[in-house]
């Protein structure tokens, strides 16, 4: 043991490394904003071409009543699309796992749905579905495939000996599913959900923009499109800022969920704790 000690990082250096990891991105952000501001000031760029960061912030505060309502609308669509994707993806993967014939019949179409760009499907959906439904369906289409693919992978990665053990002890299909397959697939499912969270926001935005050009809607993406027509560039930036923030928060929440569920047993969560 004593021979290994010198190579192990000192606690103070560990904390320093951790502080740096938070500090460095913040420094980069600050430098980026400062450079942006400087460029706008020095070249006297008018706000309708490139607003200064300060103006964007002011607009965000001034337009908060409109923007917050739009943010809520977009988040609501994202959440509905995400939940539908999560439930649909997991349920379909379970169905595939139970019946190979169902998998053979449906899997190609799941792939077709995935590889067809959603921006091309959105206008069609808006014709055939009520607008609110169409937006949710778009979010669902882009988000469900990662859940389906990851869950399928997880269900197929169950330890063969554990399957044998369940068989030996006469486990029913439901017991095997609930006590073995789902827990074993959980890290994969959570990985799929993390991807799906970001994608459902993208799906919602794409659908809103498609719908927005048809002249209706109230989400953040619609605000961006609308502000673009009116050359209200500061508000475009403010709405974009909110969309990014929403994406980060969604990712963070899903990463936190993943960490909480896996921290006691899965390798992916252990690495972080031992750091």
């Amino acid at each position: 043991m004593s021979a290994r000690e010198p190579s192990e990082p000192q606690p103070s250096r560990l904390t320093a490394a951790r502080i740096l990891r938070v500090l460095l991105p913040v420094v980069v952000l600050a430098a980026g904003i400062a450079a942006w501001d400087l460029v706008v000031r020095l070249n006297q760029i008018p706000p309708y071409i490139l607003p200064s960061p300060g103006l964007v912030w002011q607009t965000l505060l001034a337009d908060w009543p409109i923007l917050s309502a739009s943010l809520l609308a977009t988040l609501w669509t994202t959440l509905e699309g995400f939940l539908a994707a999560a439930l649909g993806g997991i349920a379909l993967a379970l169905l595939f796992n139970q019946s190979r014939w169902v998998e053979y019949s449906l899997f190609p179409y799941a792939v077709v749905l995935q590889v067809t760009p959603v921006i091309a499907i959105a206008p069609l959906l808006l014709i055939y579905l009520p607008q609110e439904t169409a937006v949710v369906v778009c979010a669902w289409i882009v988000a469900f495939f990662p859940v389906l693919a990851n869950t399928t992978l997880g269900l197929n990665s169950v330890d063969r000996n554990l399957v044998g053990l369940f068989q030996l002890y006469g486990a029913s299909g439901l017991q095997t599913l609930w006590r073995l397959k789902l827990p074993a697939a959980l890290p994969y499912i959570l990985g799929g959900l993390r991807i799906a969270g970001g994608l459902s926001l993208i799906g919602a935005v794409v659908a809103e923009i498609a719908a927005g050009s048809a002249g209706a809607g109230s989400g953040l993406a619609y605000r961006i499109a609308e502000s673009g027509y009116r050359l209200n560039i500061p508000r475009m930036f403010a709405a974009l800022l909110l969309l990014s923030a929403a994406g980060i928060v969604i990712y963070g929440l899903l990463a936190l969920l993943s960490h909480l569920l896996l921290r006691r047993w899965h390798e992916s969560a252990l690495g972080k704790e031992q750091e």
Partner: peptide
């Protein structure tokens, strides 16, 4: 009772 070559434990519990 069956004992496998690996411990074959459920890591999640």
């Amino acid at each position: 009772g069956f004992v496998f070559q690996e411990p074959t434990l459920m890591p999640w519990t």
